[in-house]
């Protein structure tokens, strides 16, 4: 990861020095174990604040929405696909963004690690030979990095940026034999009652803070339907129907757009696994339209283009 960090700093410094960009968006070291903070660098001499490691799971495309200046952005595979989506949706001009592309080695999941140890973690380090060493008060535990990945990263098949102006390293091999939808098929196979119970349980702890929505680069509506009060589409309290309506509708708004970057699950303070909703729609888009979000700036997404051969078997 050291090489990645060095290269990112070098590129950022050069872009700023040459005046190619007004600012660079990346990550700086956080104040907590397994936390980095998205940051903006405006002067070449500040480029050394930038870092890269397995704790850069926040999707930086979220900070580009509507940008009008020249921006450099550090982007892993999923971020780059959200940048593409921004471009397709006219939220960003391709000419205004310089993608500093990071061939991604997948992000580590702070919750998984916290759950695997007893006691408070004081330090987490990643080694060059693919281990994660976790230290805390009176314990030290080593994990295989592969066991500690965020759920979405473990099944990711697009780790290399799809658009890239300044590569940080050579492409990494993509995973091929992953089953992205095992859990989705299991939910599909449930009876109505089982599925209702599954969702009841899944959302029981949601506090409607909307961190999942706000961490998502796709959720850029000026006023979200859940916030609207005239008309009040959804109740504002803790009623389970309202909570579920929020989650289902948000997922639909992300259909054909979600890149499964996992920022939503990562941001949720209570650990709700809402990606099953977006992945169900991802699966449908793939099966019905052969579509994967954010792969090319030249193709219109299935939900905003009509084709005579669109599947319509569900219409009587």
């Amino acid at each position: 990861m050291r090489e990645y960090t060095d290269k990112i700093r070098q590129i950022a410094r050069r872009l700023l020095e040459e005046g190619k960009v007004d600012r660079v968006i990346g990550f700086k070291k956080g104040s907590m174990p397994m936390m980095n903070e998205p940051c903006v660098i405006r002067r070449p001499q500040d480029a050394d604040q930038l870092i890269w490691d397995g704790n850069c799971g926040i999707n930086l495309a979220n900070y580009l929405t509507g940008a009008k200046d020249k921006v450099g952005v550090v982007a892993k595979g999923c971020d780059s696909r959200n940048i593409v989506t921004h471009i397709i949706e006219n939220k960003l001009d391709r000419d205004n963004v310089v993608v500093i592309g990071v061939p991604c080695q997948a992000m580590i999941d702070k919750r998984k690690i916290a759950a695997a140890v007893d006691g408070e973690i004081s330090e987490v380090t990643e080694t060059d030979d693919g281990k994660v060493v976790v230290r805390g008060n009176g314990f030290e535990k080593t994990f295989d990095r592969a066991e500690t990945l965020q759920d979405n990263c473990a099944i990711c098949v697009h780790r290399n940026p799809v658009i890239c102006d300044e590569p940080v390293a050579d492409p990494v091999p993509e995973q091929t034999d992953v089953d992205r939808y095992a859990d989705i098929r299991a939910i599909d196979a449930m009876s109505d009652a089982e599925r209702k119970a599954f969702f009841d349980d899944m959302f029981a702890e949601c506090i409607r803070c909307y961190a999942c929505r706000n961490a998502c680069p796709l959720c850029y509506c000026p006023t979200c339907f859940v916030d609207e009060s005239r008309p009040q589409w959804v109740g504002k309290g803790q009623d389970e129907n309202d909570i579920r309506t929020f989650h289902f509708l948000r997922a639909y708004h992300c259909a054909g757009r979600c890149t499964d970057c996992g920022a939503c699950e990562r941001a949720c303070p209570v650990g709700i696994k809402m990606r099953v909703l977006t992945r169900k729609l991802e699966k449908d888009c793939k099966e019905l339209y052969g579509w994967e979000a954010g792969m090319s700036v030249d193709q219109r997404p299935p939900l905003d283009a009509y084709k005579p051969n669109d599947p319509d078997a569900f219409i009587k």
Partner: peptide
């Protein structure tokens, strides 16, 4: 998906 009355 039926809300009788705000549950609080």
């Amino acid at each position: 998906f039926l809300k009788e009355k705000a549950k609080v």
